[in-house]
């Protein structure tokens, strides 16, 4: 390999100048990108009767395929289900040891769907920005950008994005859209919240819903767990839950209160802001190359004759 001395200095000079222009070690204070006045839904598990009307409404509103068992079939409760590419929301039944006044085991029904995180891991992970947290709170997927890498599924702490694995060419990432089109209209509500016969799902501004949630659990401290799931979990979610049984008994796992994307975004932006780290490394390596190969570059013998190492 031959090095041209002039060319070497030209490029090294340019990268040096770029380096000098870098504002030192760029400070990287991570900021939440949560929309200030997002919508949300409050799910009051104390009210849910497991009628599965929300599943039905979701299916119709989103034009999803007909399920194997009809929406009034309660045998589906015999196993835990998860939302998938054919159902954006499912209701599960749990027996947690509670009994009613006639000493019969009392079930708890839990609706599951995308939590629409305030700082969603899926959107932070997405290689093209196909997943996006909208101003109104909905986390939506854009088919025009998706490449199908499924990193969103790796990232989501609630295991919500589902994939159409059987589609060979244009598989979609499927998840609850928070009925984006409906709630974008004046007075619109998500399909599930609109149909719920017992008002277990309340749609509104997240800030208002938080107040409502705390009111309800304060009003009935005997029955309600003193915790609003989604208030602090993963830095906050648009969907909030209050429950009469401990959340860990109904598969709502303990989550860190830190936003999931915080660590990776901090690392990325610390290293790559203004590309200072790669440019610095380029400069150091260039300097090393110049110093250690001077003899070859200038054609003169320099100091520090190369030493052969032996094993």
């Amino acid at each position: 390999m031959e090095l041209s001395r002039r060319g070497f200095f030209k490029v090294m000079g340019a990268s040096g100048a770029a380096l000098a222009a870098t504002p030192g070690k760029a400070k990287a204070t991570w900021k939440s990108k949560a929309p200030p006045d997002a919508y949300g839904c409050l799910v009051d598990l104390g009210r849910c009767i497991g009628c599965r009307k929300c599943e039905l409404a979701c299916n119709k509103v989103n034009g999803l395929p007909e399920p194997e068992k009809p929406f009034d079939d309660v045998t589906v409760f015999n196993q835990r289900r998860r939302p998938d590419d054919k159902a954006f929301t499912v209701v599960n039944r749990y027996y947690t040891g509670r009994t009613d006044e006639r000493n019969q085991p009392k079930p708890t029904f839990v609706k599951v769907q995308c939590m629409h995180c305030q700082d969603p891991a899926c959107a932070s992970a997405c290689i093209t920005g196909a997943l996006h947290k909208n101003e109104n709170g909905a986390v939506t997927w854009n088919p025009a950008k998706c490449i199908g890498c499924r990193y969103c599924m790796v990232a989501c702490p609630f295991q919500i994005p589902a994939y159409e694995y059987s589609n060979p060419i244009t598989p979609r990432v499927r998840k609850c859209t928070f009925c984006f089109d409906r709630i974008s209209e004046e007075g619109g509500t998500p399909g599930c919240a609109a149909i719920c016969p017992v008002e277990a799902i309340t749609f509104g501004r997240r800030s208002e819903l938080l107040k409502l949630a705390h009111q309800r659990i304060k009003r009935d401290p005997v029955n309600y767990v003193q915790h609003v799931y989604g208030e602090k979990e993963v830095g906050g979610t648009s969907w909030l839950y209050i429950s009469q049984v401990p959340f860990e008994k109904i598969d709502s796992y303990n989550m860190p209160t830190r936003q999931i994307p915080k660590l990776t975004e901090t690392i990325q932006h610390t290293i790559f802001s203004y590309l200072w780290a790669p440019i610095t490394l380029f400069g150091i390596l260039g300097g090393a190359m110049w110093t250690l190969n001077r003899q070859q570059i200038t054609g003169k013998s320099g100091p520090g004759k190369e030493k052969e190492d032996r094993s």
């Binding site: 290689i127 093209t128 920005g129 199908g148 499924r150 990776t264 990325q268």
Partner: peptide
């Protein structure tokens, strides 16, 4: 990747928050 034909898209749609 599910959409092999879309492999070029990251070159156009940049998402610097993404490690990937």
């Amino acid at each position: 990747i599910g959409r092999s034909w879309a492999i070029w898209k990251p070159l156009v749609f940049w998402q610097p928050n993404s490690v990937l």
